Structures are given as structure tokens and as C-alpha cells.
Computed example of a mutant assay.
Amino acid sequence: MKIAAVQVTSGSDINNNLTIAQRAVREAAGEGARVVVLPEGMSQAFDSGRLDTQAEELDGPFATGLKELAQELDVVIVAGMFRPADTREIDGKKINRVSNTALVTGAGHHVGYDKIHTYDAFDYSESDTVRPGSDLVSVEVDGVKVGVTICYDIRYPEQYKDLARDGAEVIVVPTSWADGPGKLEQWRTLVSARALDSVSYVVAADQARPGGEEKGGQESGPTGVGHSIIAGPDGVRLAEAGYEPEIIYADIDPEKVRKARKALPILED
């Protein structure tokens, strides 16, 4: 099964972002990809305005547009979006929180995974505006079980092990990873480490770096460092993008996962 990680830069307008996503999915499908993974925040980039004003449910125009495309091309699409969640009061101000959701649509699926681990670190509090999820999500595509995570989840190996123990052989990670000193090195290490922890393929699709390679390594906020990665169950990076918009591909072989898990039965310990 061929899988693609799409690296693009989304913006503030949900309709334009849908067009960007559709164009990229068509390109990936044309190259034979069966599963196409787009970044976190595909419907609206972080740092581009209030997320609640464009948040939609899974039957809204953004998710429906991708659902129809998945049906047309006979592919499975994974894409980050935001859905209405709840209202909280913080410092006397009412905040309409959203769910940070990875839409999975195609091959009979149309579901959402809500990011469990919100990015509450380094003086940033995602949970102020995003309600954490609680449930693991996996889907089956052509006999291969695909688990779903989002961005900061990648720092929590237990989630990856739990998905693998539940049968996931591939774990996808829509991401909008902040740039800055050491952040790219951390990103590469974490993707390979989670592949090793779960003895699974990990497909991590990040937002392209705004400003490209020229801005690489500088503080960026949660708007992407690029370098989308597909890692094998041995932790080896099979494909890696640069800073700019790009699509990377890899062939998924479930037999390699089974052999690796037999040789290294850490999920049974």
C-alpha cells in the first residue's frame, strides 16, 4: 500500500485551504497513493485568527469536500481541522473552545480523532482554546490497520504502544510543529522513536515552514518546521521532506511489521 505525506502551508481562509488540500490529494493519488495524510490545521493554520469562527462539524463544507474527493479518487484522506467543542471562562473572559481533529475519510470511513495531548508547554497553552480528546481512533484500509494521532501526541509513547497493541501497523501524525533551536532535531528523533516504540510505520505530515529554508531554525510559533517524515518499524526514515511544500511517499508492507514485532516482541512485555 502506497502512502503519502503532504507538506503544504495552510492559511486563514478555510475555503482556500480546502482548495490547497484538494490539489495536493489529486497529485498524490495520481502517483498511486492509497492513503494521503495532510497536516494538522489544514482547515485553518494556527496563528491565523480565532479558530472557533471557522470551526465546522464533520458534515460541514470542509470535511464534506474532502469526503467527496476521497470517494471520487478512491483514496483515504487524513486532514487536520477544527470542530466546535465547549465554552470556558478564563480570567473573566468566555472562550469558545474547539476540538483539534484529524478527519479520516474514504474507503467507507468518515470519522474524526480529537487530539488527546494538547500543547501546554513552553509558555503556550493550547488547552485554553482546544478541548482535549479522550479516545483512540484506528481505521482499516485494505486490510491494514491505521492508527491516528496529532502533533504533540508524538511525545507520549504510551499512546503509540496502545494503538499498536490494538492492531495498528501504521500510525499517522498530522502536525504543525514549531520551529526554533533544536526543534527539528527533536522532531526527527521523536518520529523514529515512536516508530521503534510501537514497531509500526509512522507517517508524519507537517506544515511546510513559512518562509522556507531561509527561516529554518528560527522561532516560528506553531506554524510548521517542514521535514515531514515516513519512518519504518525499525525507526529508519524512509522519506523526509525539506522546508518547502512537498509530497513524500513510501510503500507500506505489513509483513515487515509482523516480522519486526516477532523479532522484537516489546508490545507483549
Rank of each mutant, 00 (worst) to 15 (best):
I252D: 07
G65D: 11
V225R: 13
F46C: 04
V225S: 12
T53V: 15
V36N: 15
G167N: 01
G232P: 02
E240F: 01
A193M: 11
V130Q: 06
L51M: 04
I95E: 03
Y249P: 15
Q44C: 09
G60D: 08
S138T: 10
K145I: 06
E255S: 00
I3T: 12
T19L: 06
G49P: 01
S200C: 13
L238K: 07
R97D: 01
L136G: 01
I90A: 05
V172Y: 07
L73K: 13
V37W: 03
V98H: 04
T9C: 11
V98L: 05
D52N: 07
L69A: 08
D234K: 00
L103D: 09
G30W: 08
K215W: 15
T64G: 13
R155Y: 15
R34C: 10
V37Q: 05
R50L: 14
V170D: 02
K115P: 11
P84A: 00
D135P: 02
Y152G: 08
T53K: 10
A55I: 07
G108R: 04
T53N: 06
L267M: 03
L238H: 05
D253P: 05
F122A: 01
Q7F: 07
G92L: 00
S138Q: 02
I150S: 02
I90P: 08
I252P: 13
Y201L: 11
Y243E: 13
L103E: 00
E89I: 04
D162V: 05
G133R: 02
P84G: 06
A102M: 09
K161I: 11
D114K: 01
E213T: 10
T149N: 04
V146H: 01
V148Q: 06
E240P: 03
N17K: 12
